[in-house]
């Protein structure tokens, strides 16, 4: 142990002996510099200012080195903040769009002459045998079977089942769905039924020689047993006479986009008298 210390000291003394001239010189230079610092001459002030400037400059450059790691942490924090802000932005955008939609629905509810209950779709079941949507309103809210379901665009379907807290609506895009309907322009009657295409129904029962044009608006008719008259169904977008039989093959694009639908109104009025008046169908926003 001691011999190690002795060797170290011997080496140390040797270094001092070899470089003693330089050590003495350095010591004297330091003493001179300290003495210079005691002066208040303008030269010293100038020198001091420059020394501070240079040391600050060097310090600034050297200070960047540890900041590289600091930047890494900062970047990570900023990325997290960015993600958080992006999430918040999405929420705000959703809220903005929902706000627009709800305002639109509110306006519709205010001007629509029939009593309605706004409802939110809590589940969609696009089963080809029975396409339904489940709504968050039930018997407790006044919902009953066979009440019509609409949006500000037009007809959605009919309530087929009502529980206390929720209800089930059969939509138009269901193979068992049938509704008596008419062409707004000519008052030609027919039956609306689903033919298996998305957002499209067929208008069946119009003779080939009768006047139906692309762009005609299709409404529910007074002949319907379950639907109130003059609810907008959709617009004729294709007519085909080149089929067997005596009736036209008419394709109607539904007013309601069933892929985007989120909120609906349940019409609690069941008397047909309220919706038979002229111009009732104009309460719906058209998509033509």
């Amino acid at each position: 142990m001691f011999w190690k210390l002795k060797n170290f000291l011997d080496g140390f003394y040797q270094i001092i002996d070899v470089y003693k001239n330089h050590f003495v010189f350095l010591f004297l230079i330091i003493i001179s510099a300290i003495l210079l610092q005691t002066n208040t001459n303008p030269q010293i002030t100038y020198f001091r200012q420059r020394a501070i400037y240079v040391s600050a400059l060097i310090g600034e450059q050297l200070g960047r080195i540890p900041r590289v790691w600091q930047y890494e942490d900062e970047n990570r924090t900023l990325e997290l903040q960015n993600t958080e802000l992006a999430k918040r932005n999405i929420v705000l955008e959703d809220a903005y769009l929902e706000n627009i939609k709800l305002r639109q629905m509110l306006k519709f509810k205010d001007r629509f002459p029939l009593n309605t209950i706004p409802a939110h779709i809590i589940m969609k079941a696009p089963d080809p045998n029975l396409s339904t949507i489940t709504l968050d309103k039930g018997r407790d809210d006044g919902v009953r079977e066979y009440q019509n379901v609409i949006t500000d665009r037009g007809l959605v379907g009919i309530i087929t089942h009502a529980e206390d807290r929720y209800s089930v609506c059969q939509i138009m895009l269901d193979k068992t769905f049938r509704a008596a309907a008419k062409i707004q322009r000519t008052r030609l009657s027919g039956i609306v039924l689903w033919q298996g295409l998305p957002n499209e129904v067929g208008f069946y029962g119009v003779l080939k020689n009768l006047d139906v044009r692309v762009g005609d608006v299709v409404l529910t008719s007074e002949y319907s047993e379950f639907f109130l008259p003059n609810f907008r169904v959709g617009i004729v977008n294709e007519i085909n006479n080149e089929i067997e039989g005596i009736f036209k093959n008419i394709h109607v694009k539904t007013s309601v986009d069933f892929d985007m639908i989120e909120d609906v109104f349940i019409v609690t009025d069941t008397t047909k008298a309220s919706s038979v008046r002229i111009g009732f169908e104009n309460y719906f926003f058209g998509n033509e």
């Binding site: 004297l28 003495l35 002066n39």
Partner: peptide, 23 residues
Amino acid sequence: SLFGFLAGLLQDVLIGFYGLNAL
């Protein structure tokens, strides 16, 4: 260097600029 330092220090006393001549 030692002699220079001490001699410079003597001269610094005259000019009132301690350390300059010494350095």
